[in-house]
Amino acid sequence: MLILVSGGSGSGKSGFAEDLVLKLHKKPCLYIATMVPFDEECDRRIMRHRRMRADKGFDTLECYLDLKSRDVTGYGTVLLECMSNLTANEIYQEGGAGSRCVEEILTGIRHIYSQCTHLIIVTNEIFSDGIEYEEETRKYQACLGQINQKIAAWADLVVEVVYSVPVVHKGTLDEIGKGAL
């Protein structure tokens, strides 16, 4: 099953996605972490996420670039967090895919999903603050928007998390954890 979990900053989407992984009951579970530890603020975010999933039985794979080269064979469920970081890395980091970031990331997603039973992707709503950013930032928004749309088209389940409350846009949460998967 391919699941897309979206939401704003601080919406509780990560906690929700981790709970989904547990309900899917398909071990072992892998967490693909995408945030580059640039500074102390990033470190704090990373530590907070590590604490959140500490007792949930995840292995962790750090992947800042080049998702399509990763081997996740043997994992039942993979949680990738977060598409907004991975996209920014591919656009802005040295050695990233640059203008080819959309195709490269989508290829990476297909590659990962071909190796596991369930893939849950957390992404981010960065599109509605009403600010017209400069060209570079708009390009980033455009790339993430395209990636989100494509994943949603492929996904069995698309959930937006609103202050911890799931709002389902595609599929249904009813089947999760009932052994139907």
Binding site: S9, G10, E41, E125, I126, D129
Partner: peptide, 17 residues
Amino acid sequence: ELGYGVVPTDRFDREYR
């Protein structure tokens, strides 16, 4: 409903949302 935008450049704004 805050948090539906690009990460703010200002630290307080980030922490606030």
